[in-house]
Structure formats: C-alpha cells, structure tokens
Simulated scan of single mutants.
Amino acid sequence: MNIVFNTSMWQQVWEETPTTKNRLQCPLLLKSPVIALLISSPTVRLNDWSLGAYVQREVFTGLVVGGLPDARLDGSKKLYLNKLQVFTYSVKCEYSLVASCFVYGSGVRLFAWEYTGVIN
C-alpha cells in the first residue's frame, strides 16, 4: 500500500462525546481502508499508554445468523488516550466504526477521519 499523506486528503467523519462507558457507533458508512482516530481528554491525566477505547469495523453481511445481520470485521484495535493513530485495513468494503470507550465524561472527545487520497 502506497499512500501520500497530506492534510487536504483527510475528511472528518465522526466526532462524539462519550458520556458513559458504552458502545458508540459512527453514523456514516466509510469506504477508505485508511482511517485516523483520536480519543482525547484535556482533564484525564493518565500515563502515555492509557487505553481509551477499542475500535472495530462493522459490516452488513446480508447473512442473518442469530438474528443479527451485522458482523465485526477484523480484530479490535486499541485506541490510546491522547494519541492520534492511523489504521490501515486490507479488506476494502463499506463499514461503520464501533467504539467501546473506557474514558468518558467532561472534555472527552472521540474523533475519526477518513483518508480520501489515492491509495496504490
């Protein structure tokens, strides 16, 4: 995968404030196999490797097994607090992001950007 990173090649697709320790779902379907994620807090002061959330891709499979048509694709990705992280995926498809947050409350924000540039 060959990617040229440039600030104009990112589109913010999600911003949310986790209010409780629960599951959050991005309201948009994404297509890019490259995304950037950040969970930030100006008030939570934890060490540099503090886990803020787990993030997974969720896809509509068309299969209904156990009454649910959606499936998780790939394993969970760890999202560390106050660390901008770029994730790449090998399987290209439309997907939604699902986050299980461990930090929440005042000042905590979850952000996602989709890469819109050319990928070779």
Rank of each mutant, 00 (worst) to 15 (best):
Y89M: 13
L84K: 12
C101D: 02
A36W: 02
G105L: 09
T17C: 11
E114W: 01
V13K: 04
A53M: 02
P69T: 08
L30K: 08
S8D: 15
V55P: 00
P33D: 03
K31A: 11
P33A: 01
L24G: 00
V64H: 07
E15N: 06
G52L: 04
I35E: 02
K83Y: 07
Y104N: 00
V98E: 07
I119P: 03
C93E: 15
L38M: 11
A112T: 00
N82E: 14
M1S: 10
Y54V: 02
I35Y: 05
V64R: 14
V103E: 12
Y104E: 08
T19E: 14
I39W: 00
F111H: 13
G117A: 10
P18V: 04
L51W: 03
W113K: 01
S96N: 09
Y54A: 01
V64E: 13
M1T: 12
T116L: 07
K77C: 12
S76H: 07
L63D: 10
F102S: 11
N2T: 07
P69Y: 13
Y95A: 03
L73H: 05
Y104F: 15
K31R: 15
L97S: 03
G105M: 12
V86H: 05
E94Q: 13
S8P: 02
V13S: 01
D74P: 06
N22W: 07
P18D: 11
V86K: 04
L63M: 08
N22E: 13
I39D: 02
S32H: 01
A71P: 01
V118F: 11
